[in-house]
Nucleic acid binder design. Structure first.
Lengths: 129, 129
DNA sequence: CTTGACTCTATAGTTACTATAGGTTTTATA
DNA sequence: TATAAAACCTATAGTAACTATAGAGTCAAG
């Protein structure tokens, strides 16, 4: 299939597919006589792997590492595990931050009386302090 | 005070301060004879306002809007309230995403037996599906 | 009067894409 | 068969919010 079809099947934009290729996350596809990219089902699988990783917010660099590891099936998977754990740490950290953030925003919103002028607005006041 | 001192007092890097100035979030400071930026306490307050907003993940564009609103003390503060509510929505949305993400990552981590080879690694398997 | 710390501007790099310009190839229609 | 439209190509620039660098000027201390 050509890139347009791969794009529709995978849900990745054409530009993103070409970008992943440039970044070395997808293997170089065959080319038609007119230099169009030609993809197999294997290529679709590769792309879906990347997509799945991205949906877990794994960075492109880390995805590259995972792909390399995938290609060494005899090695220990402890590095894969390590990577996932680190990702989990990142997520946990970000969640904590977001919780604190949510609390402050909620508190701020509660201090606003919409009939007020900005002069007396509790939100602006709390941002000022 | 000069930019170095402002940087230390505020905890913002010198580059960030200059960047905020370029972006119109800080008013243009006085300059010394040798063209060094000279800041007052008012400037420090301005910077702290921006910093506080950023700690709430409010975008620079939105901060600009808040600053404009701050300078119209007689207007209704409903737009300020609206902005904060939208910010809260963003945060809530992101938190939901992160929760889903965390669940999947945790599940994945649990399928890994560190003594395994990558061949049999549950993490890679679930990323593949 | 020189050294070193500080500051200046302008520019490029970061992440993960998205968008555009300008050109080629393929496919569909007249 | 001619041509127009759709799909594709590469290369480059833009996005957010900074951070880092190069190369130069300024200022205080010894």
């Amino acid at each position: 299939m050509k890139i347009g079809e791969l794009s529709k099947t995978s849900g990745c934009s054409i530009q993103t597919i070409r970008y992943y290729e440039r970044e070395g996350l997808l293997s170089d596809p065959e080319r038609s006589e007119g230099n169009f990219r030609l993809y197999s089902n294997k290529a679709l699988k590769e792309l879906e792997f990347v997509k799945h990783c991205r949906s877990l917010d794994i960075s492109l660099d880390d995805i590259k590492r995972l792909i390399e590891l995938k290609n060494k099936p005899e090695e220990s998977c402890s590095s894969v595990n390590e990577l996932i754990k680190q990702q989990l740490n990142l997520v946990n950290k970000r969640m904590k931050e977001l919780k604190a953030l949510k609390n402050e925003l909620q508190h701020m919103a509660s201090t606003c009386n919409s009939d007020n002028t900005i002069e007396g607005c509790g939100i602006i006041k709390s941002l000022d302090s």
